[in-house]
Amino acid sequence: MRRTSVSRKIFVICNTTFLITMALLCLLPLVNLFAISLSGKSAANSGAVTFWPIDFTLLAYEKTFQNNNFIRSLVISFLRTGLGTVLSMFLITTAGYALSKDFRGRTQLMWFFVFTMLFGGGLIPTYLVNSALGLKNNFLVYVLPGAFSCYNLILIMNFFRSIPKSLEEAALIDGASFFTVLRKIYLPLSKAGLATVALFIMVGNWNEWFTGILYMSDTKNYPLASFLQVIVVQGNQQDLSLDPTSAAAMSERTIKAAQVFIGALPILLVYPFLQKYFVKGIVMGAVKE
């Protein structure tokens, strides 16, 4: 059975080449961006940079980290991601644990939550309600409205359901309360699952850019994602704060590339941890047998 035909060999070679090409296609745009951010002005502007920096310089990064608005938005991004993730995890672990049990009204509660996934108030009503709650120009708008997510709740609930019931029953008979069971049995046993969901929420919070644009009247209060949106998409160059001397040495393009790259960097850094777990998480949550 070990002999392989010539056509099979050809197929394997073509297939491997094709898949490697596709994989590189996913990486090379980021490499290009990184190379541009490290290149000199003339090389970058003429479009000569491909995947290796030309006239290597760190000037774009130096300049970026001297920009107070950039630093400020970076701090806001870290704060909102931290707080947002903690609050989300609190909400969905508590509710997820409760809903993994059978009790009266569970089905109705489930539908109550699932409906939020299927239907919503839409842009303007949501905006008006959040403004009425005093969330306009308020840091909490980054944290509160998006904290609850039914999708993540279902993910966590399914993780909890996969833990053998007998463990909990034994603890309950010994007189432990539901709270103790959650803390001492469920949380430690589903560490991997919780880590996956937490990382997903972190990435989502870090990447979220629309809230800042919608609710903040001063661009100073933007998180990094909104800050980048303004620079990259709306082409607002004020925030680049290029003074004449540095403008001679580097271009708008290299600075933009540096900032976009820094914006993606935290994602690239947590990605290895994320990847370790998320395959299992996706399959368990999205596809319940």
């Binding site: 509710a95 409760a98 809903l99 009790f103 109550f112 919503g120 008006l128 904290a147 539901f178």
Partner: peptide, 28 residues
């Protein structure tokens, strides 16, 4: 089962405030 109801409560409150009340605004 009161602990279970208590544990769902925060999520219920969040869902009401940030999902259901805006739906009322659809009257617009």
């Amino acid at each position: 089962n009161w602990p279970l109801y208590l544990l769902v409560l925060p999520s219920v409150i969040f869902a009401i405030i940030f999902c259901y009340i805006p739906m009322g605004g659809l009257m617009m």
